[in-house]
Simulated assay, not measured.
Amino acid sequence: MADSLEELLSATAPEAAPALLGAVLVRSDSQATVALRLTEVEAYGGPADSDLPDPGAHTYRGRTARNASMFGPPAHLYVYFTYGLHHALNLVCRPDGHAGGCLIRAGELVAGEDAARRRRSANRATEPAHAALARGPGNVAQALGLDRSDDGAPLRYLGSVPDPVLAAQRLVTEHPGYPKPWTGIFLPEHTGQAEMATTARTGVSGEGGTDAFPWRFALKNDPTVSPYRKAAVKKRRTRP
């Protein structure tokens, strides 16, 4: 296990992502403090001309105003708006100038569930079940209250602890909200305690979603993990 968050996230995303499973992400603002145990993470690499080319990544065609946060420095947030519907959260990896990030696909709410439930239920006819509150990247960002204004914000290192869930619950109890928003993470002191599944990334079209990129990592049999969807491989058009 890395000695610090910056050390962990200075690695490539495929190296860092498995170590994030079981960590607890804490998001606080003036309304509430919410804590999420991470159960599913996907890794994303860099541009076509980089040392880790990734056709499934936003960075594949190079740096833009939208994806600039993915190029570092590490231990920052990359929050983007996708499909005109929802936001998604990545934890930025690699040294400054090298693109990479870990997409937070799913987690379990372990503190601040009432606030997360209000956010998730705002435009729904029924309330989602506990396991579904942060299942899927859009639901993660909504439950945590993240949007594009959080893009590029630093990720606080809250420490490596024996029980990240207990540490986060204590923090939320003692500090239910802060005037200025921030996002932090508790890392587990030891990894590998739970069985992990590794697959191709879910729902990624083209080569980036194939078995050539087995960069989806999830806790086995955890009810919060999103269903795996095989990639839709793009077919070249042929003239009749």
Results as ranks from 00 to 15, higher is better:
Ala2Leu: 01
Ala194Cys: 13
Gly159Lys: 09
Ala143Cys: 09
Val204Leu: 13
Gly192Cys: 07
Ala17Val: 01
Ala19His: 13
Glu108Gln: 12
Gly107Cys: 13
His130Pro: 14
Ile185Gly: 07
Met70Lys: 03
Ala168Leu: 09
Arg37Thr: 01
Gly46Asp: 15
His87Asp: 11
Ala106Ile: 01
Phe71Lys: 06
Glu15Phe: 03
Ala116Arg: 00
Leu38Gly: 09
Tyr157Glu: 14
Gly56Val: 06
Gly184Arg: 04
Leu158Pro: 08
Glu15Gln: 13
Ala143Thr: 02
Arg236Trp: 10
Pro227Thr: 00
Ser4Leu: 08
Arg94Glu: 11
Asp114His: 07
Ala116His: 00
Ala17Ile: 02
Arg156Asn: 11
Ala134Gln: 05
Tyr157Ser: 14
Gln193Cys: 10
Asp163Gly: 08
Ala153Leu: 08
Leu133Trp: 00
Ala129Cys: 07
Ser50Asp: 00
Pro74Gly: 09
Pro73Tyr: 06
Leu9Pro: 02
Met1Leu: 11
Ala141Trp: 01
Thr12Arg: 13
Gly22Ser: 09
Ala125Met: 13
Arg61Leu: 10
Gly101Asn: 06
Thr64Leu: 07
Val140His: 00
Pro95Asn: 05
Glu42Met: 05
Arg216Lys: 10
Pro214Met: 12
Ser160Ala: 14
Asp49Tyr: 08
Val79Thr: 07
Tyr157Pro: 12
Pro214Glu: 14
Glu189Ile: 01
Pro95Trp: 09
Asn123Cys: 11
Asp150Trp: 15
Gln142Thr: 12
Leu25Phe: 00
Cys93Asn: 13
Val24Gln: 03
Leu155His: 10
Gly62Ile: 07
Pro188Cys: 04
Gln142Met: 13
Leu25Ile: 11
His130Thr: 15
His130Phe: 10
Gly45Leu: 03
Arg239Asp: 13
Ala131Lys: 08
Phe217Ile: 07
Arg229Lys: 13
Leu21Ser: 07
Thr39Leu: 12
Asp96Glu: 13
Tyr78Ser: 10
Met196Asp: 04
Ser205Val: 14
Tyr44Cys: 04
Trp182Ser: 12
Leu21Gln: 06
Arg237Lys: 15
Arg94Ile: 05
Arg124Met: 14
Tyr80Asp: 11
Pro214Arg: 09
Gly112Leu: 02
Pro162Tyr: 10
Leu89Val: 14
Ala132Glu: 15
Ala134Glu: 00
Ala168Asp: 06
Leu91Asp: 03
Ala132Arg: 14
Met70Ser: 03
Val172Cys: 12
Phe213Pro: 08
Ala16Glu: 06
Gly62Lys: 08
Ala57Asp: 02
Ala11Leu: 14
Tyr157Asp: 15
Ala218Ile: 09
Asn90Val: 06
Gly97Tyr: 11
Leu109Glu: 01
Asp150Val: 07
Ala153Gly: 05
His87Met: 03
Asp211Met: 06
Ser160Asn: 08
Ala75Ile: 04
